[in-house]
């Protein structure tokens, strides 16, 4: 079981921003996509989702083309967490999570008992059940990030694409968010997550895909991909890889 895409391609003002002949994401498993800013990570996720149209490209899930599914069916297969979500209105926490049940026909204020149970479970899972009545706009950055994870988890999809879910969080919160996604993968899902912190990729991923200039440069296990010469080629300088993590030296 896997998510297989081929011939993904995108251009922006004459420049190639995505050119991926073929890529496979295994289920279950957690794949970390790494690469410098502007290397095409977000574009890849959007191409997979179809929000950037792919006239030549093919995206298949479990032997069926994604485009053959209705929008609702697709939404029950793949959940997506964009890089930055801005709520237009300060909805209460539980309503935001209830929106994760949209593809199942849920109406936030009139949830079925099953939907209610699912909302409760994911909210408890991210540690926000006690604050379910609170307005989402009053949450801290870390809590909001976990709320977004809860929203995506509530959809109970076998595939989850997350675009920098741990961005701008303190280290402890980063680990909490990645742990939630790791748990989802351990429960049998395919999780694809963009991270900038290479240590997080090393700690949590089964597979790592390294991107540069719109292309996937290398894929494999963290030990295969997170090696000094590959990373140096992409990031412009060689990292220090130790048991404590992966860091870059101060530029001289």
């Amino acid at each position: 079981m896997s998510l297989i895409a081929s011939k993904l391609y995108a251009e922006a003002s004459g420049r190639i921003i995505l050119d991926v002949p073929e890529v496979t994401f295994e289920r279950p498993g957690l794949t970390a996509i790494i690469g410098p800013n502007g290397s095409g990570k977000t574009t890849l996720l959007r191409a997979l989702l179809g929000t950037i149209p792919q006239p030549q490209g093919l995206v298949g899930i479990e032997d069926r083309q994604l485009s053959d599914h209705s929008p609702q069916e697709r939404a029950r297969l793949i959940a997506y967490m964009p890089q930055k979500t801005v709520l237009a209105w300060p909805l209460p926490v539980h309503t935001v999570v209830a929106l994760g049940r949209f593809a199942y026909g849920a109406v936030p204020q009139r949830l079925t008992p099953e939907d209610q149970a699912r909302v409760k479970r994911v909210l408890a899972g991210v540690g926000l059940w006690e604050r379910k009545e609170q307005s989402a706009s009053t949450l801290s950055g870390g809590e909001f990030a976990k709320l977004m994870v809860a929203r995506a988890l509530a959809a109970e999809t076998p595939y989850l694409l997350a675009d920098e879910p741990a961005a701008a969080l303190d280290p402890a919160q980063q680990h909490q968010v990645l742990s939630l996604l790791r748990k989802k993968a351990d429960e049998g899902a395919c999780v694809v997550v963009i991270v900038h912190d290479l240590s997080l990729a090393k700690d949590y991923a089964d597979h790592v895909a390294l991107m540069n200039e719109g292309r996937i440069l290398a894929t494999g296990s963290p030990t295969d991909v997170l090696v000094p010469d590959l990373l140096a080629k992409v990031y412009g300088q060689a990292p220090l890889i130790g048991p404590q993590g992966i860091t870059f030296p101060r530029p001289s």
Binding site: T51, P71, R74, A75, A88, V96, F102, A103
Partner: peptide
């Protein structure tokens, strides 16, 4: 209600 999350999430989530 669903558009509260933005058009991108809404469209990917089946709207």
């Amino acid at each position: 209600t669903f558009l509260t999350l933005g058009e991108e999430i809404a469209s990917v989530s089946g709207l």
